[in-house]
């Protein structure tokens, strides 16, 4: 009994640094997006072309979907803390489905952009930047979906509650970050539409 208590205490102690690892990774990712948006400003502010694109509405819908997915993920976290396993699984799955829908909407956004004759490979690199922003963000979404999968998978294994909670926390830190970074990119593009 004593031994088990020590074990658990140490477990928690050694999970904390790993959570911190995720925070640092979030900082590193943020720097990529900061660099890309600064690149856009240097390009468009210099001799480069302006964007001159009215963003299609589909990006507004995808933003909505991503925000809702953050809400469902929050509900999943709450369910985990209350140890309501079935609710927890439901909300994680819901978050993942919304994530996939977001992914699809972004790709469809690309299709609509090409129909508007706005291509990735074209002399106006401001327009190429739209694809770079969304593309690099989608790569992160894939990573986020993998983290959510691992969080969901853990609930089906006989793992201690601390591990289940930890996996979900890791996934939530990253997923909420992706939500915020997408809003940042979207607002950035909206402000630079002209």
């Amino acid at each position: 009994m004593m031994m088990a208590q020590i074990q658990q205490k140490e477990d928690r102690l050694s999970l904390q640094p790993k959570k911190f690892v995720m925070w640092l990774f979030v900082f590193a990712s943020f720097m990529i997006f900061a660099a890309l948006t600064s690149g856009f400003m240097v390009y468009a502010g210099g001799r480069g072309h302006a964007l001159n694109v009215i963003l299609p509405n589909i990006f507004m819908y995808s933003t909505g979907v991503l925000i809702i997915s953050s809400v469902t993920l929050f509900l999943a976290t709450r369910a985990t803390k209350r140890q309501e396993v079935s609710k927890q699984r439901l909300f994680i799955t819901l978050t993942m489905i919304l994530g996939v829908i977001f992914f699809g909407l972004q790709i469809d956004g690309w299709r609509i952009l090409t129909e508007m004759n706005i291509f990735f490979v074209e002399p106006n690199a401001s327009r190429s930047f739209i694809y770079i922003f969304t593309g690099v963000h989608l790569l992160h979404i894939i990573a986020g979906l993998l983290l959510l999968t691992s969080a969901l998978y853990t609930t089906y294994r006989s793992k201690p509650q601390s591990i289940i909670q930890f996996r979900l926390e890791i996934a939530s830190i990253f997923w909420h970050f992706l939500d915020i970074i997408w809003i940042y990119l979207y607002v950035f593009l909206l402000l630079n539409q002209n």
Binding site: A28, S29, I32, A34, A35, I132
Partner: peptide, 17 residues
């Protein structure tokens, strides 16, 4: 390193394209 290497990633990605 954490703050500066990602910026090179961004630069290199654009270069690759």
């Amino acid at each position: 390193g954490i703050l500066s290497f990602p910026v090179l990633v961004a630069g290199v990605v654009l270069l690759i394209f």
